[in-house]
Simulated assay, not measured.
Amino acid sequence: MNLSCRLAPALLLAAGLSVVLPAVHAAEDAAPAVKSDAVAEAYAALLERDYVYPEIGRRYAAAIRAGIAAGRYAPLAGDALATALEGDAQAVSPDGHLRVRPPAGAVAPGPVRRMMPDLVAIEQPGWIAPGIAFVRFNLFPDDAAVTAAAAKFMADHADARAVIFDIRTHRGGGIDQMDVIFPWLFDKPTRLVTMATRASVAETRGSPMDGAASMRPVAGAAGMATREHWATPNADARLRDAKVYVLTSSVTGSAAEHFALAMQHTRRATLVGAATAGANHFGGMEDLGGGFLAFIPVGRTYDPATGKDWEGGGVAPDIAVAPADALVRVLTDLGIGADDAKRLSDAHVPSAPMERRRGPQRVPAAAGSTSPGG
């Protein structure tokens, strides 16, 4: 999830899918030859300094340095080296955002995954039935036009008796679109979630939450820069009593999970579908040298009431149904007949998958870039 591209380089979040900035591509194109052990040591140093949990960061670094000492990385290059570094870190402690990307042209043949699929940010906004507004978000990008479109959707549907947010295919992003949605839905200032960033990152490059009016600095754990995300009502009260539903799936990740948790724990929305992806930790792409890049998770987002986040387990729905059936369930709950609900659901099938792909996956160097999260 990109919360929200305000760093240099920006910190990003994207549901276990990293996002690469244009400046990173430029560095990659001109990357000099670097020994594999030097790449590995750069990775170890970044994990030790900046990883969201200092103790785990030290364990990651120790494992990578043990690999260096054993000569594990010296004979490797390209995708093989990226795979080894990522795998050795994940073996210490799994993290949905921890990724190592090889240089351009270094990906081995076989199953691959784009770092950020080519997704349209907003799909099918409008009235799905009389009095019921519907919109699908696939991303929360760092894009003023998308933010304006989200704001327009809310204003154009301010007379709705119910609003359905479909985030079953949402891969992450930032808070800009959330911050034009939430003011319509709450009747008083409301704390949504808490976000904590390693102080080592906040002190040297700023917090990813700096500059956002909805983010309030608060005292937090030692070694962390902590902010709370707040919703402040606007002057239009029409949607404050509207029913709100959020459709989720195992693809729903990162910034989308932030949105889902905020709506759920404030009891402003009902989540319908499957548990989300479980990709909590936000961070950013770092240069390891030789064209290698690593996504280093440097912070986490959590429920301020419990202190718990969704890393690994995801955000559980209030009503558990197969994601493909989630819209039918919501529409029937809103009084739409079963046949009409099925017809409307069939007309609003997402263009992207609602289930995570299984099996071996590598991140290709030629992945498309965007400015979103996580």
Rank of each mutant, 00 (worst) to 15 (best):
N2C: 08
L3P: 10
S4L: 08
L7F: 06
L7E: 07
P9G: 11
L11T: 11
L13I: 09
P22L: 05
P22W: 04
V24A: 07
H25S: 13
H25P: 13
A27G: 14
A27M: 11
A31P: 06
P32L: 03
D37I: 07
A42C: 14
A42V: 01
Y43L: 15
Y43W: 10
A44H: 06
A45I: 08
A45P: 02
V52P: 06
E55H: 05
Y60S: 15
A69N: 12
A70V: 11
A74R: 08
G78I: 02
L81R: 15
T83E: 15
E86G: 15
G87L: 02
D88R: 01
D88S: 10
A89V: 07
V92H: 02
V92K: 00
V92F: 07
S93W: 14
D95K: 12
L98H: 08
R99T: 09
G105D: 11
P109V: 03
G110E: 02
M115K: 06
P117N: 10
A121R: 13
I122E: 09
I122Y: 11
I128H: 00
A129P: 13
A129D: 13
F134N: 06
L139W: 04
L139N: 03
F140N: 05
F140A: 02
A148W: 10
A149C: 05
F153C: 09
M154D: 04
A155N: 11
D159F: 04
R161A: 15
A162L: 05
I164C: 03
D166V: 07
T169P: 11
G174H: 12
Q177L: 05
D179C: 06
V180W: 01
I181E: 09
L185K: 07
D187G: 09
A199Q: 08
A199Y: 12
S200G: 09
T204G: 03
S207R: 07
D210F: 02
A212N: 10
R216Y: 01
P217K: 05
V218D: 09
G220W: 02
A222H: 05
M224V: 07
T232E: 11
P233I: 05
P233W: 05
A235S: 13
R240D: 04
V246Y: 01
V246S: 00
L247V: 07
L247W: 09
L247E: 04
T248R: 06
S249M: 07
S254N: 14
A255R: 00
A260I: 12
A262W: 11
T270V: 09
G273L: 05
G278W: 03
A279W: 03
M285Y: 04
L288I: 12
G290D: 04
V298L: 01
R300F: 11
D303V: 12
A305F: 02
T306N: 09
W310E: 14
G313P: 01
G314H: 00
P317K: 00
P323Q: 05
A324Q: 14
R329L: 08
I336R: 00
I336S: 00
A338F: 13
D340G: 04
R343T: 12
D346F: 08
H348R: 14
R356W: 00
R357L: 13
R358Q: 15
G359E: 02
R362Y: 14
V363I: 13
A366M: 07
T370Y: 13
P372W: 04
G374A: 12
G374H: 12
